[in-house]
Amino acid sequence: MFPEIRMRRLRNGRIRDLVRETSLSADNLIYPMFVDETISTVQSTASMPGVDRLPLDRVADDAKEAADLGIPALILFGIPAHKDAQGSSAWGDEDIVQQAVREIKEELGRDMLVITDVCLCEYTDHGHCGMVDMEKGEVLNDQTLPLLGRTAVSHAKAGADMVAPSGMMDGMIGAIRSALDENGLRDIPIMSYAAKYSSAFYGPFRDVAESGCCFGDRSTYQMDPANSDEAMREVELDIMEGADIIMVKPALPYLDIIYRVKNEFKMPTAAYNVSGEYAMIKAAAQNGWLDEKKVMYESLLSIKRAGADMILTYFAKDMARMLK
């Protein structure tokens, strides 16, 4: 006991570094990118300062900047010129994400792991993540599954290294795994948004991606923020269906879920540091209320400490620069 035991002995100078339990590196970061078929110049976004919508001819340059900073992976979100009830611009060979994948792979090859978000919300005119029955105001689970499989196959054929389904449709991982395998794409891994909560923290993303709902919300298919045991069931089902990496989204309000998932399943685990988490720090820093770099680092370190092996974050490039 004190005074013989003094915990402060290990908190001075380089000793502090030697006993650090958790480390964060650029290797842990995944950089989200938005490619917009409707623009010809880079467009900034008010709700997410520092996050841009990119025209197709700029995606390779932005990806190269991330690669030069040591970031090993990015995830692509597409904003199409045409939206319809099915989200048919999600799976065409010449649609925006497919073109962006080819541009990035041609420029960087194996130097950048390209992941694609597989969901329909950016491509549907109603903004939901699947087919809908407009009369009933209902999102149709089973009718959506073949479309998600078709989208994943098109991304992989364009050169994507990994697909990341985010729609929270029951059975989506099994449907996508079957579709990939049937098309000779057995080596393409799936990173599942396995525990994706119906969260108010997604607001700035929906502004940037133009994916707001025209009716209702996503609470009938995304998880209730009050539930944690349910997350374990969701994750277990996705693993059984063939998920290679599992994800918790959002991250900071759900550190307990990240911890439980990692400890229970011992699977490669991702966490999405979402747009609302990013925007709050940016806004507070702009007002002089927080030190942006220190809070950014502390936030991402806490996600890693909770058990995440990889972090999808809009801070990726800023964090990589700071770590350098």
Rank of each mutant, 00 (worst) to 15 (best):
A160H: 04
Q43W: 03
Y259C: 12
D111W: 03
L108G: 09
I71P: 00
Y221S: 04
D291N: 15
T38S: 15
M7V: 11
A152C: 09
Y193L: 02
P49H: 10
G184M: 03
T269Y: 04
W289Y: 13
P146V: 10
E298C: 09
D256Y: 08
L147N: 05
D61Y: 05
M319S: 06
D207Q: 11
Q143R: 15
N287Q: 15
R321T: 08
S44C: 07
A67D: 13
S89D: 14
F265L: 14
G216K: 00
D84L: 09
M319W: 00
V153E: 08
A160T: 05
A200M: 10
P146G: 09
I96V: 15
M223S: 06
Y259N: 15
M322P: 02
K317A: 03
L108A: 06
G242K: 00
R20A: 15
I79Q: 07
R20V: 07
S25K: 11
G184D: 06
A158S: 14
D61T: 13
A279I: 13
N141T: 07
F201H: 11
K317H: 02
A175G: 13
G276A: 11
V19P: 00
I173M: 01
P165D: 00
M134G: 06
K64C: 06
L113T: 15
F205E: 08
L145D: 10
A270K: 03
A279Q: 13
L29H: 07
Y197E: 02
K64M: 09
I246T: 14
M1A: 14
A271R: 05
E37S: 14
I96D: 07
Y278G: 09
P253A: 08
M162L: 15
D36H: 08
L323K: 01
P55G: 14
S178M: 04
M7T: 12
A81H: 03
Y297A: 13
L29Y: 07
E4L: 12
E37R: 11
A200S: 14
V42H: 05
D95Q: 12
V235Y: 00
S192N: 02
F205G: 04
P80I: 12
S40D: 15
D181W: 01
R305I: 03
C129G: 00
K64Y: 05
D133A: 10
P32K: 08
F77M: 10
E135V: 09
C121A: 10
K304G: 06
A195Y: 03
I79A: 08
L312A: 08
M223W: 06
T220F: 00
I5R: 08
G167M: 07
M296I: 10
A26W: 08
R14N: 10
D244P: 00
S25W: 05
F205W: 06
D142T: 14
S44I: 06
G242P: 02
V19A: 10
S88V: 10
Y193G: 03
S89G: 05
A231Q: 05
M131R: 09
E106P: 02
L108I: 12
Y123R: 12
Q222R: 01
